[in-house]
Design a binder for these strands. Structure first.
Lengths: 242, 242
DNA sequence: ACAGTATTTATCCAACGGGTTAATTAATAC
DNA sequence: GTATTAATTAACCCGTTGGATAAATACTGT
């Protein structure tokens, strides 16, 4: 690496330095951006190299060919979200708050990691061909299903929840509400003729989703939902805003 | 066109016939399949030609270059769903039934037209670059927002609905619940280790979605939702099953 | 200081893929 | 029947792109 665009005469200074781990990380990061932005077929190996400040040969040396690069990126993406998911503690919250927090986390994670959405879409267009091949990802179970399961159980027992929903269905539904809105915001914004990613629009959406799910679970709906803008009920957004 | 793989000696029979309109349709259909399966960058012009039983030159003659081919496909896809949407009559149904029917339609349309989902994903990966360019699509408004608006109004007046939800948010949420499940079924199936597209799984999902939304709107949730399999409540599936 | 290895650079190339050009043939009009 | 136009075929062009090969340079241990 080391992009000395300024020519330094001294041989000593011109010389590049070694940094295998750093290089590998930069390559994977660049690849993530590239695959997320262009999909597998649209991704360009040369662009990845350029973005990583590396020579193209480095990709093959440190990771592998295009396929393998993509798989590494995909696995990294799953790894990352699983780690963050595990850090979410819903046990000590009362059931409605726990669900709200779950939605809030999912929403903000997606907002903070738009490449993750793109990668999932790409992988689904490939009919999960790479995911199937990856024992690594298959072994990384999301803790959310289990978390939801216990929260729902507690909610039913305490009388907070009036229904006994299948945790997997609920998990998918929450992901769906967040994912679709963000993943399809480009086309939806055109169709509706307004910016769905503005701060206000996003706040409104989060409110709507929480109200919708909680209303369904508790039976007690807050009179009007999704329309007005109440004071932000930021339910413990996660650390970084990256 | 006319793929005589069998060699017919007679000159008369060997000769190709003209069929501009048919050719154009076959090209667009082939292109739809190709773009849906591989995205824009992954699509191969030669494959489209082959699938259409045409010469590559025909694509350029009848439609245009790759870009234009894609845009034509996208516009066709929107046109098609808008037409079907308009054929849906929710006016004479009582509000809960109307919402259920709306969900049912959306769900089944997506199942019958998987390419539509793929095209939308592709277009969103392109940040709606083509949609923005298309005055055609932008002029084709979905009647659903208006329909939902009146249904919700009626529901609130009749007392069926206890909340006054923003119709656009509800529209997006319903689309989200259906879209995400189907669009991401490949990866979700791997993650959960079971086939989410089996007949049973699909029925279960439809039930869950309807129960979820209606519970939120009416405040009256059916005791257990999403878990058991009640007798199919097929709410007037649309004609073809694609 | 030097040998050996790990990392990085500098070129190269064969296949692919989108798009074009020119020739051929069917329908249509006269 | 013949000229004209519309549709279709066949062949080619050329920039792009993934991947490979070989050479150079920085570290490491001795």
């Amino acid at each position: 690496m080391i992009g000395f665009s300024i020519l330094a005469k001294t041989k000593r200074i011109l010389k590049w330095q070694r940094d295998p781990e750093g290089m590998r990380l930069r390559i994977l990061e660049a690849a993530k951006q590239e695959f997320a932005a262009h999909g597998i077929a649209g991704a360009r190996v040369d662009r990845i190299a350029a973005k990583a400040g590396a020579n193209k040969r480095m990709l093959y040396y440190h990771v592998g060919k295009k396929d393998e690069l993509y798989l590494a990126v995909l696995e990294g993406a799953y790894e990352k979200i699983r780690v963050e998911e595990r850090s979410l503690d819903l046990e000590h919250l009362d059931p409605p708050k726990a669900i709200a927090r779950l939605i809030d986390f999912t929403w903000n994670y997606f907002i903070r990691n738009p490449e993750f959405l793109a990668l999932l879409n790409t992988e689904n267009m490939a009919r999960a061909r790479y995911l199937k091949r990856s024992t690594k990802v298959k072994s990384m179970h999301s803790p959310f299903v289990e978390m939801i399961s216990t929260v729902v159980k507690r909610g039913v027992e305490s009388g907070d929840f009036v229904v006994n929903v299948d945790p997997i269905q609920l998990y998918i539904s929450i992901a769906a509400l967040c994912f679709f809105y963000l993943s399809n915001s480009a086309t939806l914004s055109v169709i509706f003729g307004r910016d769905l990613l503005s701060e206000d629009a996003r706040d409104e959406r989060l409110e709507h989703m929480i109200a919708l799910v909680l209303a369904a679970l508790t039976g007690k709906s807050m009179a009007v939902f999704g329309k007005q803008k109440a004071p932000k009920l930021r339910v413990a957004a996660h650390s970084g805003v990256g």
